[in-house]
């Protein structure tokens, strides 16, 4: 009985703590391997794209991994003429490009996503 009880305790702790820790550790490991920068698009009312300011290196290929937390959006970096495919909630859209100029650039959304759609924007800072 004593053995069974200990065994049950171990199993339960594994199920609770092990599962929780496993989920976050796995995501952490994946994130370290990811080459793309993740941006969650949100409407202006929901807090705008997050993170809102992203640093990338100059003259190097950068990749963005985009998703939406509410409705469909689209990523547009006018200064570089970059457009993404529509960013659907719960799905992932990728864009990549190589900046050839340092500085601060705004990215905007090009799909009407709420009455305040025109305020959806974020910043990409190309470091030297």
């Amino acid at each position: 009985m004593k053995f069974t009880e200990t065994f049950a305790n171990v199993l339960l702790i594994l199920a609770i703590v092990g599962t929780t820790a496993g989920i976050f550790l796995y995501e952490n490991a994946l994130e370290n391997d990811r080459e793309c920068i993740t941006i969650h698009f949100r409407t202006y009312e929901n807090g705008n794209p997050t993170p809102n300011v992203v640093h990338i290196p100059n003259n190097e290929k950068s990749c963005f991994r985009l998703t939406s937390d509410d409705t469909t959006h689209m990523f547009n970096l006018p200064d570089f003429g970059i457009y993404s495919e529509p960013i659907h909630p719960g799905k992932w859209t990728y864009v990549d490009f190589t900046p050839e100029e340092a500085g601060e650039f705004s990215f905007v959304c090009t799909v009407v996503c709420s009455p305040l759609h025109s305020k959806v924007r974020g910043k990409i800072i190309v470091d030297n």
Binding site: A15, I16, T19, S68, D69, P89
Partner: peptide, 21 residues
């Protein structure tokens, strides 16, 4: 209960930390 507890932990972590969609 044990397998259900496992699923339940996944459910709770997803509910609080997973996608809002």
């Amino acid at each position: 209960m044990l397998p259900n507890a496992f699923f339940f932990v996944v459910i709770l972590v997803a509910a609080f930390f997973g996608s809002p969609i």
